[in-house]
Every structure is written in C-alpha cells, then in structure tokens.
C-alpha cells in the first residue's frame, strides 16, 4: 500500500504555496559535524520551538555514507510523524546516495542535489540530467506525496562553474541562471541559492553577496521557481552578520520563498554563518509575515506561537521536550 504521510497531504499542493508571496518559509537546518543523531535532534527541537521548519527540515550530512544518511532519514521521519509536523525532510547527500537509500527502502521525501549551469560543471558534481531524471522517477515511485509531484530539492550558487573551471568564459550570473533552468526541468519543491557560501574568490565582500542574492532571487522569480536564498557568508569573506541582516531584510521585502533557520546562525558542520531561528521572527514581526497556514496551525496547536509570529513561553514540560532528557 502506498503511504500517505499526513505532512505531505496537509501541506499540498506544495509547489504553489511555496511560491506564494505572503511569507518566506524556513528550512530548519540542524547540522552536526559528525551526524550525531542526538545532536541533530537537539537542534531540530530548538528550531521547532522557535517556529521554524515550514519549508523543510534539511540536514547536510558530514559524510556520504548510505547507512548514516538512512539513520538520519528515519530519525526525521519518526519525528515528523510523531508530532504530525506539516513539513518534509531532506538529507542533502549526493543524488547517488539518495538512490541507494531509496533502494534500501529509506523514507526519502525529497531528493537533493547541487546543480550548476554547464554540463561540465555538473559532471564535476558527478551528475548528468539523465541521473537526475532517474532519481526523480525513483522518488515518485515511493508515493510519499499524495498530491503534486514536486519531490526534488536543488541547491545552486554563483561561482560554482568558474570554481570547477567549467564556465566556458561565461559570467557567474549567466551560469547561475542556467542552473535554474536545469532545476526547473525536474519540477522541484525547493531550489536554494547558497549565495555567500562559495567564498571571496567568487563573491568578495558583503556588498557582492547582497548583490548576488538579489540577482539570484530575481532570476528565480523570472523562471517561476520555488526559489529560496541561503543568506550566508564564510569567515574568509569580507562580510559579517550586519550584511546578512541587510540581505535578509531586502529578500523579505522582495517576497523571497524561503530562507534558512540555523541555531544562532552558526552552522557547526559546514563552518559558515547564515540566518538564525530568531531572524525568522525579526522578519515576520517587522514585515507582518506569517508561516505557512498549516504550519501556523501546528504552532498554535503545539502552543509554540500564536498569530503565527508571537512566540509563547515554553517550559520544560512542553510536549516536544517530554522525551528529550534521556
């Protein structure tokens, strides 16, 4: 029997809602440097208690081990089902790892892959269009979504072609827009430009990162993609959290589809800084934005937030913390 997880049913049709202007959603990103399930669960609870996770709960695994990825898939699947969270999970491993996980029967909601804007750069990522198509077919065959067929999550970022020596003389933004065309061919649920992650070799300072973030958002909109932005920078770039506050605000005003929520904006696995769970409240309060409706209802039901943006006091007896002491 095909499974009909409540989280996909309640939140579908996902594609159109993610494209709505009324709110940016948040990817809850609970990474851990050694993929420790307890550490990942702790950061996930933190994010949920701060009202984040309505786009996806997405983990960047530290290794490309099929067994470790499967462990994390089952961890998130159990959490989502136990608390009936209207969201989906994704482990951002290589597409070939996701294929192996699916072959082993692991609960894959979304297949992830980094994509670039030239064939040569995609080859350096170890992918081809045919491989992406194969993975999409495999994910659809799991029938984990009940409505809609958006089961892919792609990440991009200006400079990836140049970094792989695969830009053929094209500028970074053109290569990036071509990557969106790759993504669009596979009906993604989420596409995310990790704008400042690549480093100062490609986007030197805060000003360049802000410009590129807006360019990517614009091109994503033009192509009709469910486009989010990882508002971020590395420690070798000439940028700081003030620059991220600026880009976050600009993207909120511009109707960005989703952004990242990371404990304290500090990703301890990938070693870069992005936006925090707190930032989601800044944006919601200042711009009068709300979480996705079904997620807002869940936050209300769980007594985490009222009116979609006002956090409620949470004490140690909260349902999400009940099993967390062990």
């Amino acid at each position: 029997m095909p499974r009909h997880p409540p989280h996909r049913q309640q939140s579908s049709p996902l594609g159109p809602r993610l494209r709505s202007r009324s709110y940016p959603r948040y990817r809850l990103q609970p990474n851990h440097p050694t993929d420790d399930p307890h550490g990942i669960a702790a950061s996930t609870l933190d994010g949920l208690l701060y009202g984040c996770g309505d786009a996806v709960i997405g983990i960047n695994p530290a290794t490309d081990s099929v067994a470790a990825v499967e462990t994390l898939l089952r961890l998130l699947d159990e959490l989502i089902h136990r608390y009936e969270i209207p969201t989906q999970s994704c482990i951002l491993a290589h597409v070939t790892t996701a294929l192996q996980c699916m072959a082993r029967g692991a609960p894959v909601d979304l297949v992830f892959q980094s994509v670039a804007g030239t064939e040569t750069a995609n080859k350096s990522f170890g992918i081809s269009l045919a491989l992406l198509g194969e993975a999409r077919v495999a994910a659809l065959a799991l029938k984990r979504g009940t409505v809609g067929d958006n089961c892919m999550y792609f990440e991009t970022g200006q400079g990836s072609c140049l970094s792989a020596g695969a830009h053929h003389g094209l500028d970074q933004q053109t290569c990036e827009a071509r990557a969106y065309a790759v993504a669009r061919a596979f009906k993604p649920l989420l596409v995310n430009t990790v704008v400042g992650f690549i480093g100062p070799e490609y986007l030197y300072d805060g000003k360049q990162i802000i410009r590129a973030g807006l360019e990517d958002h614009f091109c994503g909109k033009l192509l009709g993609l469910p486009m989010g932005v990882d508002v971020c920078y590395t420690n070798h770039a000439e940028a700081d959290q003030d620059d991220m506050d600026t880009l976050l605000t600009l993207l909120g005003v511009a109707g960005c589809n989703f952004i990242m929520g990371i404990p304290g904006a500090d990703d301890i696995m990938l070693g870069y800084q992005s936006t925090s769970f707190h930032d989601s409240h800044y944006l919601r309060q200042v711009l009068g934005l709300k979480p996705a409706p079904e997620f807002e209802a869940w936050l209300e039901k769980m007594r985490i937030a009222t009116d979609g943006r006002r956090l409620m006091p949470v004490d140690a007896r909260h349902a999400l913390l009940a099993n967390s002491t062990g």
């Binding site: 404990p263 304290g264 309060q285 967390s324």
Partner: peptide, 19 residues
C-alpha cells in the same frame, strides 16, 4: 532546554527578548 546542549555544540537554547 539548555540540557540539550550536551548533545551538540550548536548555539541552541539561546533564549530571546521578544523574538
């Protein structure tokens, strides 16, 4: 939920002022 900090070095349970 500061007790969860023993599982991770992530900046969790930071507390808040408003949001």
């Amino acid at each position: 939920w500061t007790h969860l900090r023993r599982f991770t070095a992530a900046r969790i349970a930071l507390g808040r002022t408003g949001g």
